[in-house]
Each structure stands twice: as C-alpha cells, then as structure tokens.
Amino acid sequence: MTIGVDLGGTNIRAGVVQAGEVHTLRRHILKRKDSLTDTLAQLIDLIRPLCQYPVEGIGIGVPSVVDVQNGVVYQVANIPSWEEVPLKDILEKELNLPIWINNDVNCFILGEHQHGLAQNTTSALGLCIGTGLGCGLILNGTLYTGTNCGAGEIGMLSYLDQTLEYYCSGDFFTGRHATTALETFELATLGDRQALALWAAFGRHLAEAIKVILYAYDPEIIVMGGSISKAFSFFEPSMRAQLSDFSYRETLRRIRILPTENENSGVIGAAALGTLSVPRFS
C-alpha cells in the first residue's frame, strides 16, 4: 500500500494505491502558486491524512525535470515559485516516510504499463495533452527517463512558427484561436461546425507530433491522457487521415493509438515509483 500523488500546475490529486486500485482519493486546486511556502503547505495538508493508513511510502509525479536520485525538482511547469526544490528532503522530514519523485507523464505511462492499456507491451509511449504536451516512455519493458527526466519531450521541438506543444495542447486554442479547449469541446458536442473544424485542425497538427514519435521510438502503443484526450473522438479522424502519408505503412498498421481508460493512471504510476530501478545514461 503506497500513496500516489499527481501534482499538476492547476490541481493536485493524491490517493492510497493498492494492487493498482486507488482508494481515498483527495483533490485540491493549487493556490498561491507564486509562494513556495504556501504550495508546499497545501501539498503536505493534502497528503498527511492519507498517512494514517499502513503505507510504505509516497510517490509523486511532478511536471518538471527531476533529479530522481536526490529528489530535487527544477522549473516546475506553471508553478513559478518551484524553481529548484529539494522536495524529497522536505517531505521526508515532514511526513516521516520514504519519498520517490519522477516526472508526471513518466508516472502516467508507468501506471498504464502496469495496470492499463499498455500492459504486456515492451515499448509504449504516454502522451499527456492538456495545458502542455508531455511524453513518457517505456522502452524494453522499463520506464526510461533520460539523465534529467527529460527524455521524450517532443513538444519542445520546433514546428511551423512555434513548437509542437503550441499546436498540440491547450495553447492551440487559447493562443491561436482566442478560445479554450473546454469551450471548443462543449460546442463540438452540440454539433457546432466551427468547433468541429477547429478539432479537425488540431488533429492534423497532433498527427505531425505522432509522426515524430513513430520515427524516433516506434512504440507498440501510444496512450493519450490529459484533459484534451477526452475530445479524442473529435480529433481522431483528421489525425489518422494526416498520418496516412507516414513512410512506413506496416508501422501504421500495427500502432495502437488510444485514449486512457483510467483518469488515475498518474496517481497509480506515482505510487509504483518505489519499486523501480530506473535506467539512466552514465
């Protein structure tokens, strides 16, 4: 029994995980993100009630690069006060339990690999699409992070006049079209033609990111998470049409691209961090 924590730039979720099942899930909206003291206090207040259970430790997924060995997180996305935080040391002193920390999307694909759609695969990629675009990798059956938990971050690659993340995340709606993904989703469910066309354009851009993934990693499956993955049915047709010119037809025939079936995969994967020996370049 372990506590898993999914720390995002907007929300924090934590739960007790046993055999891939989440119990006693708690959620907070992250407040006062400009204050390290306040955000740490809120995180601790969220986790502490869960420590009453006979848990072995706490795993935390954070949207940043991470020194996994020392538990230091750097430049946390959308939390400006978290520039360099020795999170492992802080939480172990406060909660008196072992703490394991990794990138949040790494936790997502780890949860999918152990208990979700990527089970029984040796190569899988998690693609979390929300405020940003994040990637996590399972290679040769094992979570692969790179030296700084930055492996697989294709969203930072240049694309058109911006980056892939700009065109394949919430930025596409807020920055490019003065709307939001949620508003566009709600309009699309009502059959609004302009909203449906916007999702079709999004799918075409996302296909270009997926081509990069296929050329670089050639995984068995791509599992999509994040809030925008809930609109999969709106962007899937244009995404697959845009993929049709991919050079290797057998790769397209075999690849599975699916939205997650479990919104708690990040919490489940975070809880599993203590069982890992993560390979890294020396």
Rank of each mutant, 00 (worst) to 15 (best):
L214E: 05
F202I: 06
I210W: 13
G226W: 00
Y215S: 07
G225C: 03
D218N: 15
G225Q: 05
I213W: 06
I213K: 02
E208F: 07
I213R: 03
M224I: 01
A200W: 13
M224T: 01
L187M: 09
A231Y: 14
E220P: 03
E220Q: 12
L214Y: 09
V223F: 05
S227M: 09
Y217R: 10
S227G: 15
I222Y: 00
A201T: 14
Y217I: 03
L214S: 04
G203S: 11
L206W: 10
E220S: 07
R204H: 08
V223E: 05
A201E: 15
R193K: 14
I213Q: 02
Y217V: 07
I210Q: 08
S229Q: 10
D218Q: 14
A207H: 07
L214F: 08
I221K: 14
F202L: 09
P219M: 13
G225L: 03
F202D: 08
S229W: 01
Y217W: 13
V223P: 07
H205Q: 11
G203I: 08
A216L: 11
Y215H: 11
G225D: 01
L187S: 01
R193P: 06
E220M: 09
W199S: 04
V212Y: 11
Q194Y: 12
I228D: 11
I228F: 07
F232A: 02
A201L: 14
S229F: 03
A195Q: 10
A188N: 12
A201D: 15
I222K: 02
A231Q: 14
V212Q: 15
F232T: 01
T189S: 14
V212L: 11
G226L: 07
V212D: 08
G203Q: 13
R193G: 00
G225Y: 00
K211I: 03
D218P: 09
L198T: 12
G191W: 10
G225T: 05
A209H: 05
T189E: 15
R204T: 07
L196R: 14
L187N: 07
A201N: 14
M224F: 02
G225I: 02
A200R: 15
D218L: 10
A197L: 12
P219S: 10
A197H: 14
A195T: 03
A209R: 04
T189Y: 12
I210E: 04
L196Q: 15
A207N: 04
G226K: 11
L196A: 05
A216N: 10
V212K: 12
S233Q: 05
E220V: 05
F234C: 04
L206Q: 06
T189V: 09
I210G: 05
G191F: 01
G203C: 09
Q194H: 13
P219N: 13
A231C: 09
F232P: 03
M224A: 00
M224Q: 01
A188F: 13
F234T: 01
I210S: 06
L196D: 07
S227Q: 12
A216K: 08
A231P: 08
A195E: 05
P219Y: 14
T189Q: 15
T189A: 11
A200I: 08
G226V: 05
A188S: 15
D192G: 05
H205F: 08
W199R: 13
I228W: 09
P219H: 13
K230P: 02
Y215W: 08
M224R: 01
A200G: 15
Q194A: 12
D218M: 10
I221D: 05
G226E: 03
L190E: 02
I221M: 12
K230F: 04
Q194D: 13
A216T: 13
A200T: 09
L214T: 04
